[in-house]
Simulated assay, not measured.
Amino acid sequence: MNHDERIAQMTFASVYPHYIAKVEKKGRTKEELHQVIEWLTSYDEKKLQELIEEKASFEKFFQNATLNPNARLITGVICGYRIEEITNPLTQQVRYLDKLVDELAKGRKMEKILRVG
């Protein structure tokens, strides 16, 4: 199984607790995390909970998401990959999410994270 397939099969539920731990360790909140996820995917808290309970794969998670049109403004390096150069659309979307969580944990201002203006 290659890198892209592994990412597609991973469940959002398996990664979500790590996202929470990462941001809370740096003094950010679960609410801020949800705000960031909702900005990217249009999923509200209720929908997120459903996806977690059904152990949706990242493939399914992003299949049903309405990606923010400004998501393409998310650039930079995450896990050693330059986001804007990732050719697999799903892998790129997962990395968008990783990058947003990273920025939140690093204390960036919310307007910057949400690519406002």
Rank of each mutant, 00 (worst) to 15 (best):
A21F: 09
A21R: 03
A21P: 00
K22Y: 13
K22D: 10
V23L: 09
V23A: 08
V23D: 03
E24T: 15
K26A: 15
K26W: 10
K26P: 01
G27S: 06
G27R: 03
G27H: 12
G27L: 13
G27I: 11
R28A: 08
T29C: 05
K30M: 11
K30N: 10
K30G: 02
E31P: 01
E31M: 14
E32K: 00
E32P: 00
L33C: 03
L33A: 05
H34P: 01
Q35Y: 00
V36E: 01
I37M: 07
I37S: 00
E38I: 06
W39V: 00
L40G: 00
L40V: 05
L40T: 05
T41Q: 10
S42P: 05
D44Y: 14
D44N: 15
D44K: 02
E45L: 06
E45N: 14
E45Q: 15
E45D: 14
L48C: 04
L48E: 02
E50K: 12
E50I: 10
L51A: 06
L51C: 04
L51E: 02
E53A: 14
E54P: 01
A56Q: 10
A56I: 11
S57W: 08
F58P: 03
F58M: 15
F58H: 11
K60Q: 09
F62H: 02
Q63H: 12
Q63W: 08
N64K: 14
A65L: 07
T66Y: 08
T66I: 09
T66C: 03
T66V: 12
N68K: 10
P69I: 04
P69W: 11
N70V: 06
A71C: 13
A71F: 12
R72C: 11
I74V: 15
T75C: 02
T75Y: 04
G76A: 05
G76I: 05
I78C: 08
I78H: 05
C79T: 07
C79G: 00
G80N: 05
R82S: 12
R82G: 02
R82V: 14
I83C: 00
I83V: 13
I83Y: 02
E84L: 01
E85H: 10
I86E: 02
T87K: 15
T87I: 12
T87F: 06
N88A: 07
N88E: 10
P89K: 07
L90D: 04
L90I: 13
T91A: 14
T91F: 04
Q93F: 07
V94I: 03
L97W: 03
L97S: 03
D98H: 15
D98F: 15
D98T: 04
K99N: 06
K99A: 08
